[in-house]
Simulated assay, not measured.
Amino acid sequence: MDEDKFNVNFGLKEIKQIIPHRYPFLLVDKVTYMEPGKKVVAYKNVSGNEYFFSGHFPEEPVMPGVLIIEALAQAGAVAILSQREFKNKIAFFGGIKKARFRRKVIPGDTLKLVVEIIKIKGPAGVGKAEAYVGDKKAAEAELIFMVEDKN
């Protein structure tokens, strides 16, 4: 299979055409690799101006783990909602398993979000998600999702 055909350069405009998230809750800045329904590689540039740093924690800012998981879920949603049968739908969490946090994510970090869809059955599925800062794993989880029609 020709891996190059999955290299993409999606910015905020393209991402917003696929998933419904908007500021301040859009946690994906760009997508560089996407196999619809199979795999995505995306990035979140973590700025010191993020709204959550004012309270988490003012003296030692750390990106909340739940938002790292949310960024992974949004990246995975880009891959899922790019599939023909799921276009113009919305993806919701069905569950989170095996979540582990390996290192702090702080202002100035670039979070690499890698999600591989390992199972889809009807409108539900599971993604193996990993977040990296450089070559060090920051977090990992198994994300369960449900796809539904938009209201």
Rank of each mutant, 00 (worst) to 15 (best):
E3I: 13
N7S: 11
N7Q: 12
N7D: 07
V8I: 12
V8H: 04
G11Y: 08
E14Q: 12
E14Y: 07
I15F: 05
Q17R: 14
I18G: 05
I18H: 06
I18P: 02
I19Y: 03
F25E: 04
L27W: 06
K30W: 02
V31W: 01
V31K: 00
E35I: 11
E35N: 13
P36T: 14
G37F: 09
K38D: 07
K39R: 15
V41C: 07
A42P: 02
Y43M: 05
Y43I: 06
N45V: 13
N45G: 07
S47R: 03
S47I: 05
G48M: 14
Y51G: 03
Y51P: 03
S54I: 11
S54T: 11
G55I: 14
H56W: 10
F57R: 12
F57M: 14
F57N: 11
F57Y: 15
P58E: 12
E59C: 04
V62S: 11
P64L: 07
V66T: 07
L67Q: 06
L67T: 01
L67G: 05
I69V: 14
I69Y: 05
E70D: 08
E70G: 01
A71Q: 02
Q74I: 06
Q74Y: 00
G76L: 02
G76A: 09
V78E: 06
A79F: 04
L81A: 09
L81T: 12
L81K: 06
F86H: 14
K87A: 13
N88E: 15
K89R: 15
I90H: 13
A91M: 15
F93N: 05
F93D: 02
F93S: 03
G94P: 05
G95K: 05
G95R: 06
R102I: 13
R102L: 15
R103H: 04
K104L: 09
V105P: 05
P107G: 11
G108K: 04
T110D: 07
T110K: 04
L113C: 09
V115R: 03
V115M: 09
E116P: 10
I117F: 09
I117K: 12
I118H: 09
I118W: 07
K121L: 07
K121M: 05
G122I: 13
G122W: 06
A124N: 11
A124P: 01
V126L: 15
K128I: 04
V133D: 01
G134T: 08
E140H: 04
A141H: 05
E142F: 00
L143M: 09
M146K: 09
M146F: 10
E148Y: 03
D149P: 02
